[in-house]
Design a binder for these strands. Structure first.
Lengths: 189, 189
DNA sequence: TCCTTAAACTAACACTTGTTAGTTAGTGTT
DNA sequence: AACACTAACTAACAAGTGTTAGTTTAAGGA
């Protein structure tokens, strides 16, 4: 009736715990206690611990993939594409603070779906790199090794989940703008 | 005779495994197998699994603290201090690729030494923030929320351990310079 | 040769892990 | 009244967990 199933509640709670201790350190009994039930009862709603991790990570990874495809196929300039990527990360991260922790730190425990995840991530990085390269080619972006730029920007964006909750005034548009300015124009006067 | 004790070998091997799977997912039997011995034999050299983690993380954290204190007490301009911080991270990260993974991802499992670690980290971030703030005050650095700048730069530097091993031509001076340019002057033309 | 030390071993312990089986209680539907 | 569904429960299992105790083996110094 509430539109949120018990299964979704469990997955959300699990993501919260995973963020604090990591997938491996969270036991099904920890999760059950956080839900106020016994460990065995979890299995009325989910198939396995592994399945919870998959549900958290894969849906997020696919969300990023879809966002990147939209940006890539637009007619924006490279700098504008970059700004849209920053907005994409701010949006998804702020809506999935806990899930982003698993995406960043626990993907290696995706046993069956590991390859698929890695494919999505590699594709995403390649698309990102291509945008930077064509920006360099067109003279929009400074001609430094695109690998270092990619690393610097993407790492910052991937860690947003750690910092967004610390800001009391979470004005997301303002955060996107500040980030765009800092990542693109630097901090020099 | 070799200058490297068996204990140090174990800690180095552990750090390597911790980087790939995380502290909690690595068992003493995994570690023993990687060393070519039985799990019980590890205890001739180390006191506990926990102690291995502490040895990895605390020494690294203290290295950063010492580096920051040197930079802080110098007479350099804020931008030059920033460049030195970047060099500090590149140097320590390249020399401790595996340990940096634990420092970043497994610090929450430092049971007894958790508070001490958190103190070191908080102090480091405060010193870093102060440098940015005085750079803003003196007009060296653009007047955007220092919190977002700190986040962006520090996150990039903390993740260096993930990217340095991917570069075949690990010219560390060149990497420091590229990073300084990107982080300080941005990527815009 | 005797003693010490480093570094491995086997065997076992108490506890924790994810998971399954079978059951029960409440709620709504036919 | 009979049924099905949801969601909890107790009890248990097989495997794996960190760790301890006690023993063995090889090398070097006295």
């Amino acid at each position: 009736m509430k539109g949120i199933t018990r299964k979704e509640e469990i997955i959300t709670t699990a993501a919260k715990l995973f963020k604090e201790k990591g997938y491996s350190a969270v036991t099904m009994r920890d999760l059950a206690k956080a839900m106020g039930i016994k460990a065995a009862s979890l299995y009325n709603h989910i198939n396995s611990k592994q399945d919870i991790l998959k549900a958290i990570i894969i849906s997020l990874a696919e969300e990023f993939t879809e966002g990147m495809q939209l940006i890539q196929s637009s007619n924006d300039s490279c700098i504008d594409k970059l700004k849209k990527i920053i907005e994409l990360h701010v949006k998804i991260s702020s809506q999935n603070i806990y899930g982003m922790a698993s995406l960043n730190n626990d993907w290696m425990h995706l046993e069956e779906h590991l390859k698929y995840y890695q494919q999505l991530r590699d594709d995403y990085e390649n698309d990102f790199r291509d945008i930077l390269k064509s920006g360099i080619a067109s003279g929009e972006i400074i001609d430094i090794k695109p690998e270092v730029m990619l690393f610097s920007i993407l790492t910052t964006l991937r860690s947003l989940y750690l910092w967004i909750p610390k800001k009391e005034d979470v004005n997301l548009d303002e955060l996107s703008n500040s980030l765009s300015q800092i990542l693109i124009k630097g901090i020099n006067i």
